[in-house]
Write a protein that binds this DNA or RNA. Structure first.
Lengths: 221, 221
DNA sequence: CGGCAAATCTTGCCAATGTCAACATGATGC
DNA sequence: GCATCATGTTGACATTGGCAAGATTTGCCG
């Protein structure tokens, strides 16, 4: 566990990783809107122009951080799914709770990913990370539906509504806006979130009795 | 239609309103993260320090703008509700579509209100505006449920899930993330949004057949 | 082993920004 | 009329992001 990255060396050793850590800490401390490139440099104890050699500019650093955030985002969902029963619906609910858990544990990172113009969302690496997260969602929904979601209009609506509901809960939660949430009791709170997810995600389409494997599209398409 | 606010007068006449307009234009042009107080002053053709006499600092201006945004937000919902059938469920759906419409028409303002730390969310006027919007939501849900939403656990979950779903759709839409949305055809697009809303908002609680006026809470509470 | 090129980091600089202080101008009320 | 206050301007300063030039290290190649 030798730590060769002594503070007094001209060359840092692994400044790139250190800057990413510093950037996340800055984000956590001051939010996306208070993020400062020079603050990152100070935190990493390098000069203010050092980050440019690794990330170009502030946008480059935030883009790289957003891509890393996506992988952590997926990891959190995977962790939650491992702790759930293996049936597809429970897996989908677990993924949703993981989505929300990530947002609450990393609100600034969540906002960097989903509600900030500062990262370059056209960057190939960031696009790929986003795509992976989306594919994961589509896969979970498909498994829960027992159907290729892109196939039917209902499947597509299911993907959209699942994402919207979970994303809305996460976004409202990190701004303290989700109303009537049982305060303090984590178990009770998760129960309510879970109940909402189950009720909405597996709601039958209008005119049907129960959801589960959906049949064909409704007449009129 | 006389326009006494000539550009060459020392006193502007109604700089406060002009700065709010300028701020909204700046927001629309550069987003919350690119917002600049000096840019507002330039747009209003006053010196860079003039805004301070009306709003104190940048945060003050954005706080006032956020409060105004809330009233427009409510007005958009009210307009949509007027165009819908008077039954409570249609009214709730119309309010949701108005929520989404506002977000799409004013994405930067929407983000200023719901996803920015720059306004002072403890400001009394802004708090009151937010409270009004929330009360409106609770009222709409109560009417659709035929029940005081705070009364039952289901009512509370209904308020939370309604808000979360609509908010999630709005937030994903303005970042171009809501998947599988029929492109181009506005009517078809609204139909899909409406279908999602109806399916989720009026979904029966697990173990019941249909929603409409909900009965009491399920056993076990 | 020597030396040179590239990578990495620093210092110094510039324009833009937010905020403050000091001053100028106009409106209002007595 | 005139004093007072609101409104607006100018100037200054610290902070920030980015660029250029120089310093230090690493690595490669003969």
């Amino acid at each position: 566990m030798a730590r060769p990255t002594a503070k007094d060396r001209y060359h840092h050793g692994d400044l790139r990783a250190a800057l990413l850590d510093a950037a996340e800490a800055e984000l956590r401390a001051h939010g996306v809107e208070g993020f400062t490139l020079r603050g990152c440099a100070r935190r990493a104890e390098v000069s203010h122009a050092a980050p440019a050699h690794h990330f170009g500019d502030a946008r480059g650093l935030l883009t790289a951080l957003a891509a890393i955030g996506y992988t952590r985002f997926l990891a959190t969902q995977a962790r939650h799914k491992q702790g759930a029963t293996p049936d597809a619906q429970a897996q989908l609910v677990a993924a949703g709770l993981g989505y929300i858990d990530f947002a609450r544990a990393n609100p600034a990172l969540f906002r960097l990913i989903f509600a900030s113009d500062r990262p370059d969302h056209d960057n190939p690496a960031l696009c790929a990370a986003a795509r992976a997260a989306f594919d994961q969602l589509v896969g979970d929904v498909a498994a829960a539906l027992g159907d290729g979601p892109q196939a039917s209009a209902q499947g597509r609506a299911m993907v959209a509504s699942t994402w919207a509901l979970v994303h809305g809960m996460a976004d409202l939660l990190i701004t303290g806006r989700l109303p009537y949430l049982p305060q303090g009791d984590a178990a009770q709170e998760e129960a309510m979130l879970r109940e909402i997810l189950v009720r909405c995600l597996f709601a039958p389409p209008p005119g049907q009795t129960r959801a589960a494997p959906l049949a064909a599209s409704p007449p009129g398409t």
